[in-house]
Computed example of a mutant assay.
Amino acid sequence: MKGHRLDQETAERLLSGPVAGPGPLVALLAAVRAAPHPAELRGEPGAMSAFRAARADALRSTSPGTADDTRPGEIPGQGRIRPRT
């Protein structure tokens, strides 16, 4: 099955404007638009902390020469750029 992609403008219109269409689509979009119930957000701080910790670990474990440890005037993996003489 080949899915259809929505462009950003269409997605924003569906999420913010009035919706007409089949009942299941209208119900789905109404649920997506609804504010989260407080119980749904209970684990958010822990999840965000875990995400940040995992991302920090991944950034620390990158190999030398990646964009994360490249300084101005360096090419990743190649060191300083030296002008031709």
Rank of each mutant, 00 (worst) to 15 (best):
M1D: 10
G3C: 13
G3D: 15
G3K: 15
H4K: 15
R5M: 10
L6G: 01
Q8T: 14
E9D: 15
E9I: 13
A11H: 12
E12Y: 09
E12V: 09
E12A: 12
R13N: 08
R13I: 07
R13Y: 08
L14K: 02
L14V: 01
L15F: 06
S16I: 10
G17T: 04
G17R: 07
P18V: 08
P18C: 08
V19M: 03
A20V: 14
P22V: 07
G23F: 13
L25R: 10
V26T: 05
V26M: 02
V26R: 08
L28G: 07
L28P: 05
L28K: 06
L28T: 07
L29A: 01
L29H: 02
A31Q: 08
R33W: 00
A34L: 03
P36W: 00
P36Y: 00
H37G: 03
P38L: 00
P38S: 00
A39D: 13
E40L: 04
L41P: 01
L41S: 06
R42A: 08
R42L: 11
R42V: 09
G43M: 02
G46I: 04
S49V: 14
S49T: 15
A50W: 10
R52N: 13
A53G: 09
A56W: 06
A56M: 07
D57M: 12
D57T: 12
A58I: 06
L59H: 06
L59M: 09
S61I: 08
S61G: 12
S63V: 14
P64Q: 04
P64R: 05
P64A: 03
A67P: 09
D68Q: 15
D69I: 01
D69L: 04
R71I: 04
R71A: 08
P72D: 03
P72T: 03
G73S: 00
G73E: 02
I75F: 06
I75P: 05
P76Y: 00
G77H: 06
G77I: 04
Q78V: 11
G79I: 03
R80M: 11
R80V: 11
I81N: 03
I81D: 05
I81Y: 06
R82F: 12
R82V: 14
P83V: 05
T85V: 15
T85I: 14
T85F: 14
